[in-house]
Amino acid sequence: MSAPLLDVRNITKSFGGFVALNDVSIHLAPGERLGLIGPNGSGKTTMINCVSGALFNDGGAIVFEGRDITKLPAYRRARLGIARSFQIPKPFRSMTVIENLLVPLEFAAWTRIDHGRINEEAFDILERIGLADLAHKNCGDLTQIDMRKLELARALAARPNLLISDEAMAGLSSEEVDEVLEILFTLNEGGVAVIMIEHIMRAVMRYSERIVVLDAGRKIAEGPPDDIVHNPDVERAYLGE
């Protein structure tokens, strides 16, 4: 097996007395598409908060591209190439759509891009995501689907090697889900590894090469989508006994 892009080793995280993650390990190869699923409260969001640096894990280690990033603040991780979208979109509300993209370009990706081409770069990304017409709109005026797309576009502007997509499709119609999936496929073809957290099973099963299932803070299953669908433990976690 090639060296992993991301190696999460036995991490633990608790809030007060509540154990949100209990000795969970996840690894990801460069360019891989990983689905992360589990019932509500199973620790998915805590996991990506720990990987992106929004929270610090209590125990265990996180290694990215061979480097221990466990203690690095979120902005340093973003600069190393970890980008994320948020479940509830968090746009920079006082800025236009394209200005939203300039923030990651000028901070997360600053050392890795041509400073003279920042605006073109931002526009390219908007074009790829299908937001080019709205570039100069205030992001307060966007529709639900455009807001989701902006979330992805902004994460993309950070020039990631790893994109964590946190329920990017929640609340979208069936056609819109397909549209977002298409975007994520194209991204992946460009070499970006993706961790997808999703409740829409159809989407996550179609997209992922491998799936990890969390339940009550523990990893209960891991494997290709077909195996996961028929795994009795997973069924129990989702349906109860």
Binding site: P73, A74, R79, K90, P91, R93, V103
Partner: peptide, 10 residues
């Protein structure tokens, strides 16, 4: 606008 998003954007 959003401190957490800012931090995650580097």
């Amino acid at each position: 606008d959003d401190e957490l998003a800012a931090e995650c954007m580097g």
